[in-house]
Amino acid sequence: GGHPVTTQMVETVQNLAPNLHPEQIRYSLENTGSVEETVERYLRGDEFSFPP
């Protein structure tokens, strides 16, 4: 991942996926670069990993 992630982006995802840890959200956003894509992954039931 190398996309810039803002606190705003993390908070937006958190509102839609409250049971995800912020670190999981941030890591996913760094890989996708997209709030929409991260939320899609969540709704699909994809696994969210923590940063290594």
Results as ranks from 00 to 15, higher is better:
L16K: 08
Q8V: 11
V5K: 03
S34E: 02
M9R: 01
V35W: 08
F48N: 01
R41V: 03
P52E: 09
Q8N: 10
V13P: 00
H3N: 11
Q14S: 10
Q8H: 12
T7V: 13
Q14K: 13
G45L: 01
N19G: 14
N15A: 15
S34L: 03
T6V: 05
L43C: 08
A17T: 08
T38R: 00
R44D: 05
Y42T: 01
L20R: 00
G33L: 07
L16C: 10
M9H: 03
P22A: 09
S49A: 15
G33T: 03
F50G: 02
T32E: 03
F50A: 03
T7A: 15
F48V: 03
L29R: 00
V5W: 09
H21F: 07
R41L: 07
T6M: 06
E11F: 07
V35Y: 03
T12R: 15
R26I: 11
P4N: 12
Y27N: 08
V13I: 08
P51D: 05
M9L: 05
V39I: 15
T6H: 06
P18N: 05
P4W: 14
S49K: 13
T7W: 12
G45C: 04
V13K: 00
G45K: 02
D46S: 06
G2W: 13
E23W: 09
D46K: 05
I25E: 03
L43P: 02
V39F: 09
Y42D: 02
Y42K: 01
L20T: 01
E40L: 15
T12C: 13
P51A: 06
G33D: 03
E36D: 11
P52D: 09
G33E: 04
A17C: 15
N15R: 15
Q8M: 11
E37M: 11
M9D: 09
Q14G: 07
G45Y: 00
V5Y: 11
H21G: 06
Y42I: 06
N19H: 12
T12D: 12
G45E: 03
E23F: 08
S28R: 00
N19P: 04
Q8P: 05
E47A: 11
S34C: 06
Q24L: 05
P22E: 11
P22K: 10
T32W: 05
R26H: 07
Y27R: 11
Y27Q: 09
L29D: 04
S49N: 12
Q8L: 13
E37P: 00
T7G: 09
P4G: 11
E23M: 13
V35G: 00
E37W: 04
T12S: 11
T6F: 07
P18H: 07
F48I: 05
P51F: 06
T7Q: 15
Q24D: 03
V13H: 00
A17K: 00
R41M: 10
D46C: 14
T38Y: 01
T38I: 05
E30R: 05
G1T: 12
E47C: 13
H21E: 07
M9T: 02
T32M: 04
P51Y: 09
Q24W: 03
Y42E: 02
N31H: 14
G33C: 07
Y42Q: 02
T38S: 05
R26Q: 08
R44C: 07
Q24H: 02
V5C: 05
L29S: 02
Q8R: 12
V10C: 09
E40G: 09
R26Y: 10
G33A: 06
P22M: 09
H21T: 15
E36Y: 11
T32Y: 06
N31V: 14
G33R: 07
T6R: 04
E40H: 12
L16N: 06
S49H: 13
R44P: 02
P52M: 08
Q14Y: 06
T12V: 12
L29M: 02
Q8I: 13
R26W: 12
S34Q: 03
P22C: 10
L29Q: 02
E30F: 08
A17I: 13
S28P: 06
H3Q: 10
L43G: 04
F50P: 03
F50L: 06
G45W: 00
N31I: 15
Q14W: 07
L43I: 10
H3I: 11
E36A: 13
E40F: 12
N19D: 14
N19I: 07
V13G: 00
H21R: 10
L20G: 00
L16V: 12
L20W: 02
V5F: 09
R41F: 05
P51S: 05
R41S: 10
M9A: 06
S28K: 01
V39R: 03
L29E: 04
G33K: 06
Q24C: 08
E23S: 13
N19Q: 11
E40S: 12
N31W: 13
S34I: 02
E47Q: 12
T32C: 07
R44L: 07
Q24K: 05
L20Q: 01
T7Y: 10
N31K: 13
I25C: 05
V5D: 02
R41N: 08
P22D: 06
E11L: 12
H21Q: 08
P22T: 09
P4T: 14
F50R: 02
T7D: 15
A17S: 03
T38M: 03
G2H: 14
S28N: 06
M9F: 01
Q8C: 13
R26T: 06
T7K: 14
H3L: 10
T32L: 05
D46T: 05
G1Y: 12
P22W: 11
Q8Y: 10
L29A: 01
N31P: 00
D46I: 08
Y27L: 12
Y27A: 10
G1L: 12
E47H: 13
F48D: 01
E47I: 12
S49D: 15
V35A: 06
